[in-house]
Structures are given as C-alpha cells and as structure tokens.
Amino acid sequence: MTCPITAGVDGTEESLAALDWAAREAVRRGLPLRVVHVWRYEESLATADRDTQHGWVSEGVREAVRTVSGRHPELEVAVDVLEDGAARALAGAAAEAEMLVLGSRGHGRVVGFLVGSVGQHVITEAARPVVLVRAEDRPAAEAAGRDVVVGQHGSPEDSAEVLRFAFETAAARGAAVRAVRAWTLPPVFAYSPGSLKLLDDEGGLQPYERQALADALAPWRERFPGVPVAEQVEMGSAGQVLLETAAQAQLLVVGRRARRTAVGTRIGSVAYGVLHHAPCPVAVVPHE
C-alpha cells in the first residue's frame, strides 16, 4: 500500500503554503497527495444548517486543490473533509501518511491547526513525521546549494528514523545532507575544573563526538551513496547550533521523544525551540 503525503488545510495563508510544499514533495517522491480539512458545525450560524456549512467548507478546500492541481497536473490528489476534533483527526491522518504537512506562522506561537493543546497533541501523538511550513515558504528556498540539515543525537539506533527521513528527502531533491551533532561538557567538569586538564591531555571530547556522528551516518552513507554529506560537530546548545545552521537550509529535521508530565504531553526543548524560531520548514520525526 502506497502511503500519501497528507496536507492539513484550514484556509489560512500558512496552510496553503503547507499544501504547496506537500504537493511539490509528493511529485518529487512519486506519491499521491491527500488534502484534509477538519471542521466543526457552528450552531451559532442559525441561517446555515449543517449541509450548507459543509458545502461552504468543501468548496473552499476544492478551490485550493484546483490551484495545486493546475501547477502539478500529473499529481494524484484525494480530498477529505472531516467533521471531527482537529487533534484527533490530524493524528489519525498522520498514521496513514508518509508524512503530515501543516502550516505555522511567524517566529512565535504555532497557529492554524496548531493552537495550544491541539498542536501539542498532533506533534507528540503523530506516528509519522510532521512537517511545519511557514507562510513565507517559496519553491526558490529549495534551490541547489541549500542543505537538508539534520540534528543527530545519541546512538546510531536512537537517530535512525531521523537520519532516514533526512537522507530520503535529500535524495528526492538532489540535495546534500548536513548532519549536526552538538555537545556540552558533562556536569562533572563544573565541579572539578582540574579535570579539564586531564580531558585536554586525552585529546578532549571532540574526537569522541566526531566518531559518534560518523558511526551514526555510516549506514545511511552506504544506502544513499549519491547524497553528499557534511558532518558538523560543535560544542554548545543543540537548539542554538541547529538554528544557526538552519539559516541557509531548505529543511531542518529533528527527532522528538514525547514526555508525559502532570500537565500533559510535552516535546523536547530542542524540537520546541526550532519549531518556534527556524526560518525554514521543520520536520519533526518520532523516534522508534
């Protein structure tokens, strides 16, 4: 069964940019496109019954799809207008997709479908990658010379799905992968500054971090020999290093491992930070 690339649309400029991004990606990968709009019946609109409201919603979605189909006549497109809760419907749509693509606004709160707990639920519960696209996104940003930047952390097993997504995307675009591994000194060095000399005598932690990144990339280099790869290891905050690198990226790929707390499910600080501040589209990939 071929899974589609699914775009969630709500009529906003951000979601239309996400639809355009999803259509281009579907064409590159030879996959169908599924367009999903989630709506709720508004009883306050006394002059419009359920069927009338559904007709309004459906026509708006069809208009957006006509525009995309005009740009990509070869693209297979399916449309679903779902009356349901946005979080539940989108998480369900993601489970059946290669990826779910949504719009986000500016460099602050994620809006559109992603408002407060709805957005948190979609990103943390989606079984497949979720890509966030800003209204300002344009095809020119995918030009040659811009890398697909991916954050690598932990062991090769920890980052396998994140690297898989980055390499598959780069291969489809004819782009290079820039793999970034950021590291900080273990807390012990804050309590024992003298141990820094021992660290220097042994060559420091940088060689260890470089080897860890090389080991994680090795199977993906072998699987995608045509994808150029740049390795970047820096000491510093992972979020800050990724954001600086993403300034000239066509896509930033990060992993996420949902953490359940007393006030609800939360994503990690790195994914949270880049979602709010990265200038390019961001793909959030769940770890296995």
Score class of each variant (00 low, 15 high):
Y208T: 15
V180N: 02
G151E: 14
A238F: 13
P186Q: 07
P219D: 10
A95N: 06
D215R: 14
R173K: 03
I5V: 13
L75Q: 07
L163W: 04
G112E: 06
R40G: 03
V270L: 04
S117H: 10
W21M: 09
L205W: 15
G154E: 10
H121K: 00
H287E: 15
V229M: 03
R256N: 11
E74T: 10
R256P: 00
G116E: 14
V150L: 06
E142W: 13
E42A: 15
G8S: 06
A258D: 14
E231R: 02
P225S: 06
L196Q: 02
V150G: 03
A144K: 00
S117K: 04
D49L: 13
Q240F: 13
P228A: 06
R50T: 11
V241H: 11
V115L: 13
A144E: 13
E202Q: 15
R62E: 15
V110E: 07
D49V: 13
E43P: 06
G92R: 08
V177A: 01
A238D: 12
F165Q: 01
R62K: 09
T52F: 15
A93G: 07
L90R: 02
V131H: 02
A26N: 07
F113V: 00
E63Q: 14
E13S: 14
F165G: 00
G226W: 07
R28G: 04
G92W: 10
V111I: 01
L242H: 10
E96C: 03
V65G: 08
E288D: 15
S192N: 05
E43H: 15
G55E: 12
P129E: 07
H276K: 06
P193H: 05
T184K: 01
G70F: 08
G255L: 12
V177K: 01
T261K: 01
A175T: 02
G273Q: 14
S237K: 09
T52W: 14
A283Y: 05
S159D: 09
F189E: 08
G194T: 01
E288N: 12
G60R: 11
P186H: 06
L132P: 02
S69Y: 01
V101W: 12
G194V: 01
V118S: 07
E125D: 10
L199C: 12
E161L: 09
